[in-house]
């Protein structure tokens, strides 16, 4: 029992299961998965499908938070990446070049954040706030390059990566799995994860142990930029237009939330990639459930907030102990 309540995956997983059970009761056929027009179809698949962009952003966020940083600029990076894609398509670049350009833009944004935090020693929340505020404006200015009148586009390649499918499985799920494995290998099968965690846990000690704390700090923002760029490609190709004002709005908050639900601490020092994915799934399952439950949309945000608060309280040892003590006293 101790081992079970103690494991960090128990409570987020339990929350996910409870939400799914409630869904199963209020929406018969919730778990049905069919094959329609040669691809998997059904609510669980839909949840996975929709969770991917936030899950991608959250993975990068988990790495940043592990270094005791934070990246508020992810939503704006998505906007810049989207605007760049639309612009280069209008300019007539080959689409696979645009794919690489989009990723490069994300990395460049990450390098900017990393420069501010690691080289200029600006506190991460302030440093990334700068791009958060300016990024959407930059996106709008990129739209202006070609007049900005019609930022929509068609791209078989990018849309294939976003909304297409390989066999029965949506392409974005496969690509996510690939990126997840690659990131996991980078963090856990090289010493990068250990270095990031030691810098997040105690930067002065890591530095004296001979770790280049500055370079490590720089790299986490680049990783976040890359993950976010990939989310930006998916989100932009999905709606096949550049919409810097509202694309991925508040995604930084969802991403931070996913990390925290996954047991990550803003005090830094630990990276949990698998748990962060679980956190992103909890958030998306909740969002889909609220939509399906027929609650008026006005209630959505409040219900989400209450459930998230509940999940976080479940995770807190102190809160659990307090509840159990109360429970025991009632009994006795």
């Amino acid at each position: 029992m101790r081992a079970l309540t103690g494991h960090r995956a128990t409570w987020p997983l339990l929350a996910l299961v409870v939400i799914l059970i409630v869904d199963g009761i209020i929406a018969p056929g919730f778990f049905a998965i069919r094959i329609v027009e040669g691809r998997l179809f059904g609510t669980p698949i839909d949840i996975l499908y929709r969770a991917m962009p936030i899950a991608l952003i959250a993975l990068g966020m988990a790495v940043v938070i592990g270094s005791k940083g934070i990246d508020l600029s992810v939503g704006s990076i998505v906007a810049v990446v989207g605007a760049t894609i639309a612009w280069r398509i209008k300019a007539g670049d080959p689409h696979f070049v645009i794919l690489l350009t989009a990723l490069a833009v994300g990395i460049l944004c990450g390098m900017w954040n990393g420069f501010l935090v690691a080289v200029l020693n600006i506190q991460p929340i302030i440093a990334t706030l700068i791009l958060m505020v300016s990024g959407r404006g930059i996106g709008l200015m990129i739209n202006l390059i070609y007049g900005g009148t019609d930022p929509s586009f068609e791209s078989p390649l990018l849309q294939g990566l976003s909304v297409g499918s390989i066999g029965y499985v949506p392409t974005r799920l496969i690509l996510f799995a690939g990126l997840f494995v690659a990131l996991w290998l980078l963090i856990r099968r090289t010493a990068l994860g250990l270095f990031i965690e030691s810098v997040g846990g105690n930067a002065a000690a890591a530095n004296l142990a001979g770790i280049n704390a500055r370079l490590i700090t720089f790299s986490v923002y680049v990783i976040s930029g890359l993950c976010t760029a990939w989310a930006g490609i998916i989100l932009t190709a999905d709606v096949h237009t550049s919409d810097p004002v509202s694309v991925a709005l508040f995604s930084e908050l969802d991403a931070i939330l996913a990390v925290v639900i996954g047991g990550g601490s803003l005090a830094g020092g630990r990276i949990y990639l698998g748990m962060t994915l679980l956190g992103a799934l909890v958030i998306q399952t909740l969002a889909t459930s609220i939509l399906m439950s027929g609650l008026p949309p006005e209630y959505n945000l409040l219900v989400k907030a209450v459930v998230v608060l509940f999940v976080l309280l479940l995770q807190s040892n102190n809160a659990r102990d307090a509840v159990f003590t109360l429970f025991r006293r009632r009994k006795g």
Partner: peptide
């Protein structure tokens, strides 16, 4: 505590 170890690790 301050310069030697990373307490959480």
């Amino acid at each position: 505590k301050a310069e030697g170890l990373v307490g959480e690790l």
